[in-house]
């Protein structure tokens, strides 16, 4: 049997919203350590890797390792029925072909239970090599979302140039071109508003802005986003999921033909 309870069910709903544009169905690997998921988009240029550690759940029980094929589209629809302060329990009974989502209101006056049929999905776990990135930009996730949305108006690609002083996002297309430059914060009251850059080497990389905008669907999970970059290496875009884990998106850069 598998059972995991989250006092703040809305966190799980945000995780699903963060994934479901990039991947519509995926295999959840459940073990004693927690839940992990790894999936590529249909064109194989982007990958998402999710980790939710067992100690982040209010209660967690996993008697044996399980691979659960789940439609994220359907799960998202079911989670829309959850109240914003509801507690969420995810359960898979032994020998069952369904996952049960139970929602309980904070005043414990309302209980809802939904079953979603599990799917038989092909899955293979691909290893992502440990990378010592040349540059890590940390910035407010709302700011990153706004920049990606704005850059998409100008073109299909966004070039991210990072130096020790700042990071510049630029796009050009048929309608014109533009860029936004953020300087490294020197003095901020709140850490979550800061832009900080750890840099060994300056980088300039170009990405399909459409994917960056899909990654930004996970921005409500975290005040800050980490963008880790090296020349000729996929971008790693990371949102923390509270203290319990993270969503990491990987995206191959665009290169000159």
């Amino acid at each position: 049997m598998f059972e995991a309870r989250l006092a703040q069910g809305s966190i799980f709903a945000k995780v699903i919203e963060g994934l479901r544009e990039l991947v519509t169905e995926a295999t959840w690997e459940c073990s004693g350590n927690g839940i992990t998921l790894q999936a590529m988009d249909s064109s194989h240029v982007a990958l998402v890797s999710l980790v939710l550690r067992s100690d982040g759940f209010e209660t967690y029980r996993c008697d044996r390792n399980m691979s659960l094929g789940i439609s994220l589209t359907s799960m998202s629809k079911v989670l829309k029925m959850m109240g914003k302060d509801d507690t969420l329990t995810i359960r898979v009974n032994d020998d069952s072909d369904a996952i049960v989502l139970s929602m309980e209101s904070q005043n414990q006056e309302e209980f809802a239970e939904y079953e979603l049929r599990l799917m038989d999905l092909d899955s293979e776990h691909l290893g992502i090599p440990d990378t010592d990135y040349s540059c890590v930009v940390k910035m407010p996730s709302t700011k990153f979302s706004r920049i990606c949305r704005d850059m998409a108006i100008l073109g299909d690609s966004v070039t991210i140039c990072s130096t020790k002083d700042g990071v510049k996002f630029g796009a050009k297309g048929d309608v014109g071109q533009g860029s936004i430059r953020l300087n490294q914060s020197t003095n901020v009251d709140k850490e979550e508003d800061a832009v900080s850059i750890e840099l060994r080497e300056a980088v300039a990389l170009t990405f399909a802005v459409r994917y960056l905008n899909m990654f930004c669907k996970a921005a409500p999970l975290s005040n800050q986003v980490n963008l880790s970059m090296s020349e000729d290496t996929p971008l790693m875009c990371e949102f923390k999921v509270g203290d319990m884990g993270h969503i990491r998106f990987y995206l191959a850069p665009k290169i000159e033909d």
């Binding site: 170009t206 996929p234 990987y250 995206l251 665009k254 290169i255 000159e256």
Partner: peptide, 14 residues
């Protein structure tokens, strides 16, 4: 002309 490569090229999955 910019082209989009697959992740497999970078991560030696081929």
């Amino acid at each position: 002309q910019l082209i989009q490569c697959k992740l497999a090229i970078y991560y030696d999955w081929l």
